[in-house]
Amino acid sequence: MRKFWHVGINVTDMDRSIAFYERIGFKVLQDKVIEDANLARAFMVEGAGELRFAHMRLNDSPDEALLDIIEWRGVPAAGRASADLVHPGLCRFSILTDDIQAEYDRLSAEGVEFLHTPQTVMGPDGVHGWRLLFARDPDGTLFHFVELVGGAATVSRETPTER
């Protein structure tokens, strides 16, 4: 395996979604329309023959994963995303930040609607933890910002029996 490449997000309005993610800080790397009779079979989307996609990235680094925003043509997406934080399947994607309060203030002023204010969750040691801030994109896709608290607040490599 080479690397984690991208997360695909279906959208109902490509231009609205691009504008939203640009407000968050993503930049468009490519925005293309694909017409191919094999789309339906390759992506398992009945009736698909055309789509528009935009690859977006937060930082100018080829090592960083992309958002792959997809708007199906001829098979329009309907409704809203239904991800939640409990049931199996992709529940969110995460954006690491160094100052979650500044992001909350900046993006709230730009009209991004958050599900709550920044919240802090501490690990068992009471020193390391995370500040979290959840939002949904215009189609309801759930994501959150994370600020690490107490230095190296990433998940430990210890197994449960070593703790």
Rank of each mutant, 00 (worst) to 15 (best):
M122Y: 04
P88C: 06
R41L: 11
L39R: 05
D125W: 06
V127L: 15
R106K: 09
P118Q: 05
F93T: 05
E113N: 03
T154K: 14
D68T: 09
S82G: 15
M44N: 14
L115T: 09
S61E: 13
H144W: 11
F43V: 05
G49E: 03
D105P: 03
T97I: 03
L142K: 05
A48L: 10
E46W: 08
G111S: 13
S82K: 14
T141D: 08
P88Y: 09
D105F: 01
S61G: 13
A81M: 08
D98C: 09
A78P: 04
L96H: 14
E50W: 07
V127K: 15
E71I: 02
V146K: 12
E50T: 03
S94Q: 14
F143S: 02
M44K: 15
A135M: 04
R106A: 13
W130R: 13
A40C: 08
G151C: 11
V86Q: 09
E71N: 04
R106L: 14
G89Q: 04
D125F: 06
A40H: 10
R136H: 13
V86R: 15
R106Y: 12
R41D: 11
E46P: 11
L58Y: 00
L85E: 03
H128E: 04
Q101R: 08
I95T: 01
E46L: 06
E147D: 14
F145S: 01
L90N: 14
F114A: 05
S108Y: 05
T117D: 15
F145N: 01
P124G: 08
W130K: 12
R41N: 15
